[in-house]
Design a protein around this nucleic acid. Structure first.
Lengths: 185, 185
DNA sequence: TTTGGCATGTAATCCGTTACATGATTAG
DNA sequence: CTAATCATGTAACGGATTACATGCCAAA
């Protein structure tokens, strides 16, 4: 059996945020693709079926709402749902099996592939720099907020920044090593 | 269609390492669970079927070898396999969708769950410290090696160290924030 | 001889992505 | 009018883990 899906809990958690305003599947996807996209992902193919299942289990309740003329089926978390979510929060988070293709390629690398490895490294270093800058910007914006959720989101932003920064440093050092090997050979 | 499996290339890459000595499925699993376990994982359920498929495609060739009395079916990479592997190495590595349950829980956290979050954070920080120390030890050992594969493995070890170090720093800062909130409320 | 590790595999199952399908609304 | 976007879904597919099954060899 594959390990337990965390999708239902993500959904419950998002519905539980910010005062528990009802959200549609589309809204939830927006949240995931927005603020948390750098450490989590869900597809519609997961969200909509799970939403139905959660409603059937009375962990969330559906209510048809109209916004801007369009009909949307929005869901709100129930008391039962809050309990379920809280129990999941207590459980020790699994350290998911990291699969980093860049590191893997570096590990498997040999002299002949150095130019390609350098290309990959440069590309990802630049990406990491961009990400870091973006997070820093968001952090600036978050600093001023008074919402009770803010400190938690700040912590995750700082995680992204720290990770990106460490990555850039390491990438630069590794590039130096690779270029030295390339020249020497 | 789910994205292309990288398992065959990992296997080809490992068979390509260190002079291309023939390895069995068991050996390959040992390598993966050993040096690269912190950034890659494969199960027997993946390895053995892929091994057969690769042999059928003539990317590796099977040969029954005896070691320590036991019979083992070991595989060696072929010239065709090396080409396939090299082409994969040229391709830009995908930045796999990171799913970090700890960060997710922090993001979804609210005041009531702070004690649990602190527990999770402490646990993972201590894990990261241990990992970092372990990598540092391995790095010491690797530094002296003259094998041509060594520099690449050193780079990946340094990645692990840098990541672990950054994580510990961030975790300590975050713990301070959480404890401050807890006291203040 | 029986226990346990070595070694090889298969089957069931489930998660998650991709692709497809549909309709309603708004902007041009 | 029509193209784009909003919004909601479903079906098919494939990857990966887990659990199960098997047999050999060595040591107690």
């Amino acid at each position: 059996m594959a390990r337990e899906s965390r999708t239902p809990f993500v959904i419950l958690g998002i519905l539980n945020m910010g005062g528990g305003k009802p959200l549609s599947g589309y809204d939830i996807k927006q949240v995931i693709d927005g603020a948390i996209s750098h450490f989590w992902a869900e597809s519609y193919g997961q969200i909509y079926p799970v939403l139905k299942r959660l409603a059937a289990d009375k962990l969330i309740c559906a209510g048809a709402v109209k916004r801007a003329g369009r009909k949307r089926s929005a869901y709100a978390i129930t008391a039962k749902g809050r309990i379920e979510f809280s129990q999941w929060m207590q459980r020790s988070p699994e350290h998911g099996p990291r699969r980093d293709e860049l590191i893997l390629k570096l590990f498997l690398g040999s002299k002949t592939e150095i130019p390609a490895l350098i290309r990959h490294l440069v590309q990802r270093r630049d990406q990491a720099r961009e990400m870091g800058d973006q997070y820093s910007g968001w952090l600036q914006m978050s600093q001023g907020k008074k919402e009770s959720d803010a400190p938690f989101q700040i912590i995750t932003l700082r995680a992204g920044i720290a990770q990106a920064h460490a990555f850039v440093r390491w990438a630069d050092e590794s590039l130096a090593i690779l270029r030295r090997i390339e020249k020497g050979k």
